[in-house]
Amino acid sequence: MKKNLEPVYYGDYLQLDRLLSAQSLQSSRYGEAAHEETLFIIVHQVYELWFKQILHELNSIIDVFSEQEVKDQQLTTVVHRLKRVISIQELLNDQIGVMETMSPQEFLAFRDYLVPASGFQSIQFKMLEICLGLKREFRIDFDKQSFYNRLEQSDRDFLENLEKKDSLFELTQKWLERLPLLEFGKFRFWELYRTATRQMLEHDEQIIRNNPTLSDKELRQELKELDNTRETFDALWDKEKFSLWQEQGQFRLSQKALLAALFINQYNEEPLFNLPYQFITCLTEIDEKLTLWRYRHAMMVQRMLGGKIGTGGSSGHEYLKRTTESNRIFKDFFNMSTFLLPKAALPELPAEVRSKLGFSLS
Rank of each mutant, 00 (worst) to 15 (best):
L275V: 05
N327F: 06
G310R: 05
L341I: 01
E269A: 12
N335T: 07
P271C: 04
S315I: 05
G312M: 06
A261W: 07
R296V: 00
A261P: 10
R303M: 02
Q278T: 12
L292H: 11
G307Y: 08
G313A: 00
R296A: 09
A298W: 13
Q278V: 11
Y267A: 00
F330R: 02
F263P: 05
I280G: 01
P276C: 09
I264Q: 04
E285T: 06
L320F: 07
T323V: 13
E318L: 09
K308T: 07
A260R: 05
T281R: 05
M336E: 02
L320R: 05
P271M: 08
G313C: 00
F339V: 04
T338K: 13
N335D: 11
F339L: 03
T323K: 05
I309D: 09
L272V: 14
L305K: 03
F333M: 14
A345R: 11
C282W: 07
L283P: 15
G306F: 06
T311S: 13
G312L: 06
M299G: 10
T291G: 14
S314E: 07
A298K: 15
D287R: 02
H317K: 06
K289F: 10
S314L: 03
L283I: 15
N274C: 12
N335H: 11
T311V: 08
